[in-house]
Simulated scan of single mutants.
Amino acid sequence: MIDWSQRPRFRDKELAQIGFGDALGGMVADKLVEVCLRDSNQWVLLHIEVQAQYDANLPRRIFDYNYRIFKEYGREVASLALLADEDPNWRPQDFHIEALGTTMGISFASAKLLDYDNGYLHDSNNPFALITLAHLRSQQERHDADALLAAKWHLTRLLYEHGWSTQRIIVLFKVINGMMALQEPQQARYWHSILKLEKERKMEWITPLEQSFMDKGWQKGLQHGLEQGREQGSRDGAADLLARQLTQRFGPLPQAVRKRLHKATMEQLEAWSDAMPEAQMLKQVFE
């Protein structure tokens, strides 16, 4: 239904400016994009909410987002729930309240990643198919460290079978590596395989900061990266590194957390990296 010849307009920064997700754990609409419809040539706002685990409050939250966005912009708002959880029966699609003859609520569309066939995703030339497959294989193999390593390495090699540009391959490699977190022994084997692949393909996959992970393990590597960041004055690089590790540990980061990381001092980044190994939830890192 969307005319992709018209470039989508992302509205995420505007959401932050009007008070969405100012505080950690606050309301953060995952994505807000302005898109053009094919049939009517009309521009509408598309709100996309990504949910990786069951949450009974999701329908109410989508209702809140949808109303607040509509109130702010005075425009049509379509909401889409992208369900990345493992329960095939959980398919929320509406939220309604009725009282004394008055009904208030919302019905919204949803997409379930479990519905996609692995074979179809494997053969598709759509880069998001590969990302979806990485997510699903991580769910399927998470209890078998060697099987997860094999799946990750297969998807990494698959990057070359689509004829994509070097830039796209590097971007997707970093996404896959962040999503498919391995235990330290398997990750070390993966890094060494990547080094061989770099030489074969004459392509730099790993930055000097990431190289430290192979030599010292993820936590020591993070500390090394922070120290290197201080020496080079690269606070942004240290923040990116910590964001990557938090994503591996706790899943996709809310926009408010990413914003907080990139405003932090080196001392704050170091304190949060020290707190990460013992934290059971994302908010405990920042407490």
Results as ranks from 00 to 15, higher is better:
I194C: 05
Q186C: 10
K202Y: 07
W205T: 09
Q186R: 10
G233D: 03
K220P: 00
L226F: 07
L155T: 03
A134H: 01
W205A: 11
A145D: 10
W191C: 10
R137S: 06
M214G: 14
L197F: 08
E200H: 08
Q219L: 14
E204Q: 13
L209R: 09
E227S: 14
E227M: 12
K152R: 12
R235I: 15
K196M: 09
A147H: 01
H162F: 15
E210F: 08
W191V: 05
L158W: 04
E184L: 07
D146T: 00
M180D: 02
E161L: 11
E210L: 11
E204I: 12
L172F: 01
G163A: 01
E231D: 10
L172M: 06
E204P: 05
H135I: 09
K174E: 08
Q139D: 04
Y190C: 11
E184R: 05
L159V: 13
H192T: 09
K220F: 07
H154Q: 14
R142S: 13
T166S: 06
E161S: 15
S138Y: 03
H143G: 00
A134W: 01
K196I: 13
S212H: 07
R235G: 08
G217Y: 03
L148R: 04
E204L: 13
R201L: 12
H224L: 12
L136H: 01
H192L: 12
D146Q: 09
Q167S: 13
M214D: 15
T132Y: 02
A150G: 04
